[in-house]
Amino acid sequence: MLDALQYQFMQNAFWAAILASISCGIIGTYVVVKRITFISGGIAHASFGGIGLGYFLQINPLYCLIPFSLLSAVGIGFISKKIKVAEDTTIGIFWSVGMAIGVIFIGLTPGYTPDLFAYLFGNILMVSQIDLVLMIFLNILIIVSVKALFKEFLAMTFDEEYATVSGLNVNAFYIFLLCLIAFTVVILIRIVGIILVIALLTIPAAIARQYTINLFKMMLLSICICLFITLAGLWLSYLFDIASGSTIILLAGTIFSISCGIKLLTKKLIS
């Protein structure tokens, strides 16, 4: 592993793992406690439309990915909160419509579409310097937002009604949280791809939740867990020469199972 780090793409992968873990730990915590895993899945899949558009316009798909994921975040939030369509219905619609747009654009793009597989299933080894700059920028945005609005987000995720009575514009905060999820999705797509994003958004935070009762500590812990999973997954995929994104997810799933087993055992031992 260490001698592999002499390669530029390995160094980029290493930094990408760190940057992804930070956003993933912070935002994944909100996704888990607010129980909005499938909204995140909807945002991720809908943003496939952006990737298709990027290919069609012959520009870096990441540039179209950001507006598309933001649009789907605002769209899902707005339609379910304001027009009162059931949230799961809204998610289903955005999920499939976004993917359909992507498929049409890719079909319209002449010739071969390189790296398409990497956007669907992720390839941490293909992270470029530009990607890293973008990741740093989005991470700063996420950290600053969450630090500044920590008490508002805590109130909104725990008790929307009380937050409203306290004068908070709950819908605006909710949609803003969905936008932060959209940014995280953009970061994570490079690592594990559209289809596997929800795994990395939920598993580290779900493991962390088993060991702490404090939201802030849960964020720190899930950052650490996410970092371990992505770096160890990267190393394993290098060792066995298998797909990095899927290795990371399988490792995450395994650790989650072990953690659940430990919880179950300690519960039995105590009682």
């Binding site: 406690v33 008490k151 508002e152 805590l154 109130a155 725990f158 009380y162 009575v165 702490t212 939201l215």
Partner: peptide, 17 residues
């Protein structure tokens, strides 16, 4: 929800800050 008694009670001051 990962929140303790102290944090819930402090939430009562949300409208004042």
């Amino acid at each position: 929800f990962p929140i303790n008694v102290w944090e819930v009670v402090l939430m009562g001051r949300l409208s004042k800050r």
